[in-house]
Amino acid sequence: MPQFKTSRSAILMLAVGLLLGMPVAADTDAEIVASREKGLQIATEQKQRDTGWGDSESNVLMVLRDASGNESIRRMRTLALEVTGDGDKSLIIFDEPRDVRGSAFLSHSHPTAEDDQWLYLPAINRTRRIASRNKSGPFMASEFAYEDMSSFELAKYQFRYLRDEAVNGVMCYVIERLPADKFSGYSKTIAWVDKEHYRVQKIEFYDKKQSLLKTLTASDYQLYLNKYWRPMLLRMQNHQTGKSTDLIVEELQFNVGRSAADFDVNVLERLR
């Protein structure tokens, strides 16, 4: 009985739609499809241009600021390995604060499946797996969530091209990204990707209630291996709490000879 009701009203709506709204609806539908296609196209190009870098090693400084401007720093080394056909692998070794020195965070990301994550704690000389669905929380109490820093994979989002817009004099595509993962902390993000090099200039993060939560600005782009642009400064500003975090890349090298073996779980406990 209820089913019949629903279908009848559905038919009714369809009829009304056919009579009144169809041309308009078809138009907007076509527009949406087109903007999605263009969005995906741009994202694909962005990913494409960032393919083939192999492996890298960097020293990173994080400067955290609270609402009244008090600062606190974190230091870490990161190793990254590009994996074709799957998500990238990364290893973060913490140097500061002193009391977590030597702790290491290993992540095998996957485009659609949940990432595999482990944390090695030198104080108890043990490695623990971390449930990765909780990747939306702050990383080292900073304004970056782990999901903000994990590798960019096309399958993680649904894209939509919004418009062209200049950021700091650089002409950009503005792309909306809807996260596919329901454990994401965001309802959507909007990225400004420059037209010339497909570099992310800015990202706005919207929380689950659709309010602007944070803005990431990427700057000091440098060219590596004549092909890959990397920002040396990432600044994340939280608009709701007034806190911010600067992520400063102090040193970055490519082709350091890392292989999959360096990213094996068993390596963690042998790290120095």
């Binding site: 977590v100 702790s103 994550q117 454990f183």
Partner: peptide, 15 residues
């Protein structure tokens, strides 16, 4: 120990 337990816990908390 305290610092690293907290590190681990904080890494596991959601938004």
């Amino acid at each position: 120990q305290a610092a690293q337990y907290l590190l681990m816990y904080e890494m596991s908390l959601p938004f």
